[in-house]
Structure formats: structure tokens, C-alpha cells
Computed example of a mutant assay.
Amino acid sequence: MDDIKQKIKTGQLIPFLGMGVFENTKTKDGSTLPYDSDSMILALNNGRAMSDRLMYEYSRAAMSLEQRKGREFIIQMTNHIYSSKEYEIPDIYKWLKELKPKYIIDTNMDDSLQKIYNDVEHFLITGVSRITADWDRYLIYLFDVKEQKYTRIEKENLNLDLPILFKPMGSTKPEMNFIISDADFVDWLTEAMGGYAMPNILKEYRKGKDYLFLGVDFSRDTFRMVTNEITIDLNAGLSLFDKEELTKKEDKFIKTHNLEVLNMSINNFINSNE
């Protein structure tokens, strides 16, 4: 695919960010931020590994911690990971700041994405789970540049006139809502399959679009399902992988979704698309 930056600007190529964009990202005190499932588990469990069964995927580990210590613990611990220490946002966000995609998907739960749009009015959609008031598994906000704050709005007021930031797994800001444990993902995916995980306007907009996957782990069942639901009706796309060999599940997913693999690091990708 030629001219990646131009296709992002026109909205044909939609960036889709995963936890891998945080690899080598350190806080001001030198500690590292989670960049894959294993490091997320260690962060949630105060640096301690868990059983092999729980170490398979961080949602399992989070569910175990939630069952033992309560829902509030896992919410506060997730917030603590991203909010207790200062860190510089990963370079890919800085690269995207100049492009300001009209629609961007970020499965990370911190507020790096919001920071690169804080100079323009925009909509923010964050995922939410295990609620009884509504079928919808998202909240919509409008950002006021002058006031530098978000106001929650109804879905009828969402439109394509402003950039749309979609954080399906939730975020630390403007409200702490996280899709983190098995119970969260089961609830979110169940409603996603029923059509309630994203507004109708985005379900129409996404038809025939291409995606640029950056730091997304397709080796884990959960995130393949999440990605599949969000990108229904896609045309094709690109996926960055900085490793020599893909697993069978990764390879099958990539072929099924008509993706082209770019075997390079995110930094090399940025440097080659300056």
C-alpha cells in the first residue's frame, strides 16, 4: 500500500493501536509500562507471576484477582498502572498527532490518545461493560478545547464532522471504565456480537475501510475476537510484526482479514513514513 500517511488523512486507512506500542516505554522513575499480556499480569499483581493457566492471557489473571480482591481493586490497580507515574507518550502517538486521523481505534486503557487531540474539538467513545441500564457498551463524550474537558453526550449527537477517538477497552479518563477481566470481555463481546459495542454511525463508516494495526497481538484469542467485531466489513489492511515467525492462529487471522504483514518495528515504520 502506497502513501500510508495520505490514506490515514483521507480516512481510508484507519489506525488500530494495541498494547505493543508501549514496548520500551518507561516512566520517569525508570519502571516500564505493560506492553504485552505477560507484563500486564505482572503489573496487575505487583510484579509477581501467576500460575501457568492464569499467565496465558491477562484477562484470566485479572478475573482471578477480581474474584479474590473485588471489582474495585482491579479497577484501581489498572488506573494506578497508567496514572500513578509520569511517562512520555510512545512515538507512534507523536507521529499520529501530526496526522490527526478522523477516526482512530485505540485498545489501550491510558489517555495517550486523548493527549494528542487536546488541541482540537473531537468525540471520544469509551467502552464499558457489565451495566444493566442499557444494551450499549460504550459512552460518548464531546471535547471542549477551550475548557479542556469532556462532556458526556447522547449517541444521537455523534457525527462525522469531528474526529472520533474510539477506545473500546475503556480508559482512565474522563471516567475510569476498563474492559480488563474475563467477565468484562465476555459481556462486551456478547453485546458486540449483538451490535451494541459501537454506534451505528461507525458501523456504516467502517464499511470497505482498510486498517493499520500497530502493536496488536493476534496470538491471543480475546483480542482476535475484539478486533474481528470492531472491523466487520473491512476491505484489507496492514499489520506490523517485529518477529520472525507468526503463530498458526496469527497467520490464519491475517489471511482471513486480507492483511499484509510489514515485518518491521514501530520505530522503523515511523522513520520510513516521515
Results as ranks from 00 to 15, higher is better:
Y87K: 07
E66V: 05
L113N: 05
S112C: 08
E72M: 15
L96Q: 07
K100T: 10
Y87T: 03
G70M: 03
S83I: 12
I116P: 00
R71P: 07
S84E: 11
S84V: 00
I81M: 00
Y87A: 08
L65T: 06
N79F: 14
E98P: 05
S83V: 13
T78A: 09
I89D: 03
D110C: 15
M77F: 10
T78N: 04
A62E: 08
R60S: 12
P101R: 13
Y93T: 07
R71N: 11
D110P: 09
W95S: 08
I81S: 04
I116C: 08
L96I: 06
I74N: 07
E72D: 14
I92N: 03
P101S: 10
S83K: 15
D91C: 11
L99Y: 02
Q76T: 02
K94I: 02
D91E: 15
T107V: 14
I105K: 01
I81G: 00
E98A: 10
F73S: 06
E86I: 04
H80E: 14
K115P: 14
E66K: 11
Y93N: 08
K102E: 14
R71M: 10
D106Q: 01
W95I: 00
L65W: 05
Y103Q: 03
I105M: 04
Y117I: 04
E88Y: 11
E98S: 11
A61N: 00
W95K: 02
K69C: 11
Y82S: 06
N79D: 14
Y82R: 01
L65M: 09
K100D: 06
Y82Q: 00
E72K: 11
I104G: 03
A62Q: 05
L113S: 09
D111R: 11
I75C: 13
E72V: 11
Y87V: 03
S64R: 12
I81N: 03
K115I: 13
L113Y: 11
K97C: 01
Q114C: 10
L65D: 05
T107Y: 00
Y103G: 00
P101L: 12
I92G: 06
E66F: 06
T78C: 11
I74C: 10
I92A: 04
S64H: 14
N108W: 08
D110G: 12
W95M: 00
S83R: 15
K85D: 12
K100L: 09
D110I: 11
Q114A: 10
K69F: 13
I105H: 00
E88H: 12
S64W: 13
K69I: 09
A61P: 05
S112F: 05
K115D: 14
K97L: 07
I116V: 08
S64C: 07
P90M: 06
M63V: 01
P101F: 12
I74G: 09
L65I: 02
S84R: 08
I104E: 01
D111E: 13
Q67M: 15
K69D: 08
L99M: 07
E72H: 09
G70L: 08
R71S: 13
